[in-house]
Nucleic acid binder design. Structure first.
Lengths: 113, 113
DNA sequence: AGTGTATGTATTGGCAGCCAACACATTCAG
DNA sequence: CTGAATGTGTTGGCTGCCAATACATACACT
């Protein structure tokens, strides 16, 4: 997987992993990595600015938590974030349909292998 | 469809539309637009530099043709271009699988709606 | 004769957005 | 006491597409 393949789809990824519950930044990275089967390895320079932006947009809310001496900033989906996530999923489907139909003109979706 | 959604996938699109035969730049734009159902509208500032790059890489070959008084530059896939196209298709499948598995963790491919 | 639209190729400046590199702190294993 | 894992964060830079621009021919309409 080339390095900046997530370009333009990062917001959806972040919102998606937060759908099932609050996570802190480091856990988001590992969650994305695990759910993609190791294909997607986000960097801190990628997600922290993005998380801040999403919070500023009102799609996430954050709160500091202490696990022992550690401080963690936990991010949580807002209602607006949930709505945006639905939009991102729809946009993803349109996007893959558009590119896919050019890349594989004869292919029909839903056909196994 | 957001403006620069094709970022990172342009080469595959260009190679794919040239698979079925030579086309000139303007025809490539309309072919991509048609095959994507109108979703993808490439600009000249996007494809001409890309076509030059692909030719420089040996994936395309070009030749000037005259239709009446009009001059057209026709691009054709080389064998290397065909091989690269196969690689781009494989990369696309990996890419959609990776993003898709994060975006829709429960979804299983091949399942209609 | 003039205007608009379609066809056709090509270059340039700008910028969004991600990454690499860096900086710093705590915890625990060896 | 050193290294790896855990944890948050910033900054500079580059890739790669787009918008704007330029120019040319052909044809329909008025």
């Amino acid at each position: 997987m080339k390095a900046d393949a997530v370009r333009g789809h990062l917001d959806g990824l972040l919102l998606a992993v937060l759908e099932q519950g609050p996570l802190h930044g480091y856990a988001i990275i590992t969650a994305v990595q695990r759910r993609s089967g190791g294909a997607l390895e986000l960097r801190t320079g990628t997600i922290y600015p993005a998380l801040n932006r999403l919070e500023r947009l009102g799609l996430l809310s954050s709160s500091w938590q202490s696990a022992g001496e550690r401080r963690r900033r936990c991010y949580e989906l807002t209602d607006a974030g949930r709505a945006t996530l639905a939009g991102e999923r729809a946009a993803w489907d349109e996007f893959t349909a558009a590119i896919g139909s050019v890349l594989n003109p004869g292919a029909r979706p839903g056909l196994a292998t």
